[in-house]
Design a protein around this nucleic acid. Structure first.
Lengths: 265, 265
DNA sequence: TAGATCTTAATGGTCCTGCCATTCATTTGT
DNA sequence: ACAAATGAATGGCAGGACCATTAAGATCTA
């Protein structure tokens, strides 16, 4: 109790923060569970002895944080949301974009994750799981050998394979991190499939990776993982070489002038 | 694009969202730069043809998102913030907290991360950084040899060391993960320092890890990382053996009753 | 003149009151 | 039994008012 929040007794000028914190605390320690409905704004602003605007701003902050979801109309209100990775991914993407961080870092991170995940998956996954993974990589290969492969399906299957592999570690943290990275950033693997010169090699490399996993051969599997990322790097480098035009958006005059009005009621 | 969220195109009853999106867009493409000040709420609500409350809620959302910082008083207002990794880490930490994950999974994940990070840090960090890391581990050791070490300082230093190591990879993604794990979970390393039997070994092991990094000896450094986690596992197992009482927080009656009121003005 | 103090204007924070649009349960009509 | 109208609860928005805080400018004092 040394960090007792009562130390800062609702300083004026920040009541909204307190309301948000108290509701967040209630969610965090499970006093209100996902799916449940919070009292209405009109009820809350009475319970908190504040104005309704304060409660609204607090709820807006919690909504932005991904903790609640707000519905209009009768039986509407603020509902506690199930925990989602979406916000975390979005925040990371926001940072990377604002800082102009190179995709290389994401790729490097993914490769290191893939190596760890593969090692763990070989050690812990059951034979059925390994077989299933292998079959799906074969399906991927089949898809890419068709006349006009549906790239949307291909991309989706690739993501699914990555997630499945992460699940085979039996450690959910790896799955979450994988999902977060997939959600936030365009996985960049897409370019490998979009390029006719790489897609077949990529798919067969996936299959051989899965084969290595199924055979319980970590080094073989890891070799193919390495090959995957070598191809990815080369492919991206080629793309960058083609279109090196950087679209640096112009900024002439006052920005706010260009802001369209929101139509009033 | 099958999950296109654009299905709900700026329906009325969401003016606040539009305002937030427009300001965010202005920040994202650099029409307003970090450090610059946005127009006041009273100016904005005129420009947007909305009420002031709408603008306030939008700004609150942007603040929660970490894009702006709001100051009171004359010459106050909303200032565009420099992109900070902190917000992104916080989002991921929030998710991890809500998942109530077993410490074992987190520890396994952390060890795998530590190994990758250490390898990269050895390869990329400058000599000064490596020396600084080493000196700080020595400081940690010194602190723990004192009569009555300030554990708060110790824990803080340990966190700082982990972040520094992550930064030495020159890849911000690793720092993101590290910060998120620290924020989201009670770092569990704390128990190592809190136990008199482990703290000195832990600290000297940290120093030897840093020494291995400074010497550019990956295997030696990784050995010590392994030793750290062996100790951590043992320490946690011992603690669990002692006190196996699980504090499952009770939930009697309506939670909201227990919410203290915020004093009105 | 230099420093301290007071005044003032700008700004975010809060409160209030009222009204509208949406949504769902209920009632009513066919 | 089904459809349509009704009503109530709720979030979304508008506009106005006042307070607390802050920094810059004006004033006073030594």
């Amino acid at each position: 109790m040394k960090d007792n929040p009562m130390f800062a007794p609702a300083q004026v000028g920040r009541a909204g923060e307190d309301v948000a914190l108290q509701i967040e605390a209630a969610i965090m320690d499970g006093r209100v569970k996902p799916g449940e409905r919070l009292p209405s704004e009109r009820d809350l602003h009475v319970q908190f002895h504040t104005s309704r605007g304060v409660v609204r701003e607090a709820l807006r902050a919690l909504k932005q944080k991904g903790l609640v979801e707000v519905k209009k109309g009768a039986r509407g209100g603020a509902f506690v949301k199930e925990a989602e990775l979406h916000n975390a991914s979005e925040s990371l993407a926001l940072f990377l974009k604002l800082q102009r961080i190179s995709p290389q870092f994401l790729i490097e991170f993914r490769e290191s994750m893939d190596r760890t995940i593969t090692t763990l998956a070989i050690a812990r996954a059951g034979d059925e799981e390994k077989q299933l993974l292998l079959e799906e990589t074969i399906l991927l290969e089949t898809l890419l050998n068709e006349e006009d492969p549906d790239m949307e399906t291909v991309h989706e299957l690739d993501r699914k394979l990555n997630i499945r592999l992460a699940q085979m570690t039996k450690n959910p943290v790896f799955e979450w991190i994988m999902r977060a990275v997939q959600l936030g950033l365009s996985s960049h693997d897409d370019v490998l499939y979009d390029d006719a010169g790489y897609r077949k090699r990529t798919a067969s490399n996936w299959r051989e990776t899965a084969q290595g996993i199924a055979d319980g051969e970590p080094f073989r599997a890891l070799s193919h993982i390495g090959y995957h990322y070598v191809m990815l790097q080369k492919c991206i480098a080629e793309k960058a070489g083609q279109a090196s035009v950087q679209d640096t958006s112009v900024q002439d005059g006052d920005f706010w002038e260009s802001m369209p009005d929101i139509p009033g009621p």
